[in-house]
Design a protein around this nucleic acid. Sequence first.
DNA 1: GTATCTGCAAACTCTTTGCAAAAAC
DNA 2: GTTTTTGCAAAGAGTTTGCAGATAC
Lengths: 143, 143
Amino acid sequence: MKHNLDTVKQKLYDKDHKLTPQRRVILEVFTKSKEKHLSAEDVWGMVKKTYPEVGLATVYRTLDLFAELDVLHKMDFGDGRGRYEFCESEVHQHHHLICLNCGSVTEFEDDLLECLESEIEKKNHFKILNHELKFYGHCNKCH
Amino acid sequence: MKHNLDTVKQKLYDKDHKLTPQRRVILEVFTKSKEKHLSAEDVWGMVKKTYPEVGLATVYRTLDLFAELDVLHKMDFGDGRGRYEFCESEVHQHHHLICLNCGSVTEFEDDLLECLESEIEKKNHFKILNHELKFYGHCNKCH
DNA sequence: GTATCTGCAAACTCTTTGCAAAAAC
DNA sequence: GTTTTTGCAAAGAGTTTGCAGATAC
């Protein structure tokens, strides 16, 4: 699932939403930023560079909307603010190593959980839609 | 690691904290409540039944303190409020199935991750202190 | 032209903090 | 007696909402 302007436009129109310059710029921020896990305030700061009059409320509303359309994925690293990144797939995200000292977030991929899921689903009568695995500890800079 | 009044008392005294009636009652709430994942407001509601004049700030401060002493473990289920439960072990907590419809939280145990950890530590130069695994989906009531 | 979207300010929720009085030891 | 702890009220952070004007199509 690769998101470009056209696929997002389509998703918006499918649900009677419009493509506004604000939404376009917010989307651009995510394609261009090298930091992946952006908070609303982060996004706002970057959007204002090309669109200074944008409101923070618009950023929040847009991030919400994009999360609803499965364009962005909302995460929580326990620091009291939501973080957003592009949805990797329809189903599962990758996982995160979170440094308790400096707060840095590293990603890693793993398929081990997939095989666990069907077992857990059966045992608990629970339909799994997504999973989230986080390791907390100290990164190589903070040893 | 089983926490009773005496072990907690010891932990408090070890760090020059005092055992107050408020702290005693808050601890009791966790031993007596059948719902395990309590928010500060939850705890406050239950504490007030036996100690009506307690302040919410005291509850927050006590939960913080207990988390620092590894008596309680603070969690986050993505609903914008912190949740607390007894620490299961010095190292790792169990994991959670979170229903996206009704918000119910079920627990499950699994040791599969333990074997993953040393591999991840080596590959990423990351010292893992704790991990957190959550499955989001629909519980048996909400199918 | 009409429904959606925006910016602003105000409201809201959860949590933290400053302070003087109270309590633990 | 000293230090920690408490309750209160006020402040703080992050997020949401109501509304009138603006914009996409």
